[in-house]
């Protein structure tokens, strides 16, 4: 599959899927629709990883973001009361909107200035072994630090969820 037209077509289909999903996340009036669109966006990103021959990254994206984060977001949204009440307006909208536009313009300028990689020329090579070696070789310290941070977050979440009764007793 070396045809550049096909390569570009696959890339633009995946990119359009991701961007349209992201658009629905931001613009939908129904927050549950936004949550489902977020799933579509994350799925599209996994597709882009697979397209760029990053097989392990694509599957991990599926496992962590599509199977984990997406479901968590959906749970949070569905357990929230007043779902259909979309009349709220963020008081900081002007400031946030300005920053968002600024970021979008900056990102757009970067994209315009850089060459968009549309696929790698080499055949799909397995990346799992190389990533494993890297994680337990040169990057072992960052890897361990991240795991300690995650452990701290986990303990913090458990402590907060347990709550405190009056008088200091749990």
């Amino acid at each position: 599959m070396t045809d550049p037209v096909v390569h570009a077509a696959v890339f633009y289909v995946l990119a359009a899927f991701t961007v349209v999903g992201a658009g629905i996340v931001a613009l939908s009036g129904n927050i549950v629709h936004s949550a489902f669109a977020l799933f579509a966006t994350l799925f599209g990103v996994a597709g882009l990883y697979a397209y760029l021959s990053a097989d392990l990254l694509a599957v991990v994206q599926m496992l962590v973001y599509v199977g984990g984060i997406s479901v968590l977001v959906l749970f949070a949204v569905m357990l929230t009361s007043g779902l259909s009440d979309t009349g709220h307006t963020n008081p900081a909208f002007r400031l946030a909107g300005g920053i968002a536009v600024l970021l979008a313009v900056t990102a757009g300028a970067f994209v315009a200035a850089s060459a968009v990689p549309t696929g790698v020329e080499s055949a799909v090579a397995p990346t799992t072994g190389a990533i494993g070696d890297a994680l337990l070789g040169p990057f072992v310290l960052p890897f361990e630090v991240v795991s300690v941070v995650l452990l701290a977050a986990l303990l913090g979440a458990v402590t907060m969820a347990r709550g405190w009764k009056k008088g200091g007793a749990r």
């Binding site: 489902f36 799933f39 097989d55 392990l56 599957v59 991990v60 599926m62 496992l63 599509v66 199977g67 984990g68 997406s70 479901v71 959906l74 569905m78 397995p126 990346t127 799992t128």
Partner: peptide
Amino acid sequence: DLDVGLLYLLAITGLVVIGILM
């Protein structure tokens, strides 16, 4: 015969979860 076959099997279940919630 994907190099990440077993992980893919675990990951793709996410679609089913989302579908059932939907």
